[in-house]
Design a protein around this nucleic acid. Structure first.
Lengths: 137, 137
DNA sequence: CTTGACCCTGTAGTATAGTACAGGGATTAT
DNA sequence: ATAATCCCTGTACTATACTACAGGGTCAAG
């Protein structure tokens, strides 16, 4: 099996070496086997896992939540019932996030299109195009 | 015009009093007028703004980014060009976030449905239902 | 007229998520 | 064989976003 050292995984995942070790301490990735010199030897799958962590963070999940999401896949001690309950909750959260993002996107699109219809700078229709109500609630 | 004091706005927005003052210091909400005793007098619109801030935070926007989003609406000194450039960037970010969330949701849905088809606990199909590849990349 | 629940400023402390050394060993390129 | 470049552990520092006082003023109700 092809393995790689920490510098390579970190670079491939777009994060720092220290961050990889930090995630290991926090239990987001498991401690990989070591070679004779004590160097960590990672399987390729670790890169995918680290990329997932990075993206999930950008989506507003905390490391704790990301750990939970990842454990839904990998925890062999959970029962189906546990996992379904957990998963249902996560799905609800994620659907709410998607809906909120769509609202913000639609409001921004309105603004963008209003600006596109070649106006003079003086009456740029920002304030009208996107009222407090539309964007903020 | 109906106004309210800081305790009321904070409670209505679902955040703490100290947090409201903190957002004022950071320029996310403007310094409201004060009454004779120096107490902040907020218009109702501040509640919507605070709620927006709270939700945007849950979506992974930093306070700096939220400030920029809010300024797209309210900054009267920006030109249409500035705003369009800014808005376009935000739209790209938001669309990427939506896509990522949908990917995670679909993977979780697969897991959820696989578990729903009454299996014995022994062969709960987590690992198969949601492979690393599907969820993680 | 005082007591409890508010408000004020200012400063300090906390949680989360890194990020940066220090001090040392291993490996590779010249 | 000796730099340069990686790796190790452990600890300390940083940024962000709160959160909690300290020490004091305001105000409505009993």
């Amino acid at each position: 099996m092809k393995t790689m050292m920490i510098g390579k995984v970190a670079e491939s995942a777009g994060i720092g070496v220290e961050t990889v070790r930090f995630y290991e301490r926090r239990g987001l990735i498991e401690s990989p086997p070591r070679n004779a010199s004590g160097y960590r030897q990672y399987p390729v799958s670790t890169i995918h896992r680290l990329r997932f962590i990075r993206r999930a963070k950008e989506l507003g999940f905390s490391l704790r939540e990301i750990k939970e999401l990842l454990e839904l896949q990998t925890d062999p001690t959970s029962t189906c019932g546990d996992i379904m309950k957990h998963t249902e909750q996560k799905l609800t959260d994620i659907n709410r996030k998607i809906d909120d993002l769509i609202k913000i996107r639609d409001a921004l699109n309105l603004l963008f299109e209003a600006c596109s219809r070649d106006r003079t700078l003086a009456d740029c229709p920002i304030i009208n195009a996107m009222s407090d109500k539309e964007l903020q609630d």
